[in-house]
Amino acid sequence: MLNSKSSDVYSYGVVLWEVVTQKIPWDELNPMQVVAALGFMNRRLEIPDPLWTSLIESCWCWFH
């Protein structure tokens, strides 16, 4: 079950991803495609810097 704390932690992981990559997440998708990619296809952003992988992925595991 998704709750406010889970959403906050997941969002923090996305903010960390933005800081590390200096990119806008899912900029090639419209909002409904983002929902589908995350909610139904379990798609995640690629983390290019291994130094941050563990921390960011641990934030994203709160989502499910």
Rank of each mutant, 00 (worst) to 15 (best):
D49I: 11
S54Q: 06
D8H: 12
I56M: 15
S58Q: 06
T21H: 04
D27V: 04
Q33H: 02
S7I: 15
V14E: 07
L55W: 01
V19S: 06
R44S: 13
W60T: 06
W26H: 12
E57A: 08
V15G: 00
S7C: 09
V19W: 04
M41H: 14
C59P: 05
V35T: 10
K5D: 10
A36S: 13
L51Y: 09
P48D: 08
G39Q: 11
L51C: 06
D8W: 07
E46V: 15
V15N: 02
P48W: 05
T21L: 03
T53S: 11
E28H: 14
R44D: 08
V35M: 10
R44A: 07
Y12H: 13
G13W: 01
F40R: 09
G13K: 01
T53H: 06
L51M: 08
D49W: 01
N42W: 05
E18V: 00
M41Y: 10
E28Y: 08
F63S: 11
Q22I: 01
S6W: 00
T53A: 12
S54P: 00
W26A: 06
I47R: 04
R44K: 15
G13C: 03
Y12I: 12
V20I: 15
S54L: 07
D8M: 07
V35I: 15
L2S: 09
S6A: 15
H64D: 14
N3A: 03
C61H: 12
E57Q: 15
I24K: 11
E28N: 14
Y10L: 14
E28I: 03
N42F: 10
M32S: 12
S11Y: 02
W60Y: 08
P50H: 06
C61E: 14
A37S: 15
A37K: 13
N3M: 04
N30E: 07
I47A: 05
Q22G: 06
S7K: 09
L55D: 01
V14G: 04
L16F: 03
I24S: 08
L38Y: 05
H64I: 14
E28L: 07
Q22C: 09
L51W: 02
S11I: 02
S54C: 03
G39Y: 07
R43Y: 10
F40W: 06
W17C: 04
G13I: 00
W17S: 03
K23A: 05
Q22L: 12
W60P: 09
K5F: 05
L16Y: 02
F40M: 13
V19T: 12
N30C: 05
C59V: 10
D8Y: 13
G13Q: 01
N42R: 13
F40N: 10
C59Y: 07
H64R: 11
V14S: 03
E57Y: 04
Q33T: 03
I47P: 08
W52C: 09
I56T: 11
V9N: 02
W17I: 05
V19Q: 05
N42P: 00
V19F: 14
V19Y: 11
M32H: 11
W26L: 04
D49V: 12
V34T: 08
F40S: 09
R44Q: 15
D27G: 01
V34E: 04
I24T: 13
D27T: 02
M41K: 15
N3I: 00
L55Y: 03
N3P: 00
D27I: 03
I56V: 13
V35W: 06
D8K: 10
C59A: 12
L38V: 15
V19N: 01
D27E: 15
W60K: 11
S58E: 09
K23P: 01
M32I: 12
L51R: 13
V15K: 02
L16M: 15
